[in-house]
Design a protein around this nucleic acid. Structure first.
Length: 113
DNA sequence: GGGGTGACGCGTC
DNA sequence: CGACGCGCCACCC
């Protein structure tokens, strides 16, 4: 399955609990390397399973939805987030309240080696 | 195998 | 979080 980083990233995104969001950098960190931030974006861009991979719960470090969101419009992502109970005033979510803090509290940056 | 691109992140101005 | 640049890694041609 996890033959490559892509599958790994999908696994992480798929584990994002409902009513919560995660950042690209966070997903990258949970996937193994925070430097995969760009790869995460690329992986979600490839999104082979939009029904199983809630890519709309993945936002940038500012908590804002991506401009290139391919679900038919960035506005579409906001509706999905609100459906999860996540208000997005200005197309942005409050990371302080809704960011997936599962492992962020314990993960160690690659540079901390 | 080389080169270009990108749904990012962080430092710096 | 205003803008600009560099770095970092994987994918496509």
């Amino acid at each position: 399955m996890a033959d490559n980083s892509f599958s790994r990233i999908y696994e992480v995104v798929r584990q994002i609990p409902r009513g919560t969001v995660a950042t690209y950098g966070q997903v990258a960190a949970l996937a193994g390397n925070r430097r995969w931030a760009r790869v995460v974006g690329y992986a979600l861009h490839a999104n082979p399973d939009p029904e199983g991979i809630p890519c709309y719960r993945v936002v940038n470090r500012f908590g804002e939805v991506s401009s290139a969101f391919a679900f038919g419009g960035g506005n579409r992502q906001i509706e999905l987030l609100e459906a999860d109970g996540i208000p997005c005033p200005g197309g942005r979510v409050d990371l302080s309240t809704y960011q997936w803090k599962r492992a962020v509290l314990g993960y160690v940056p690659d540079g901390a080696k």
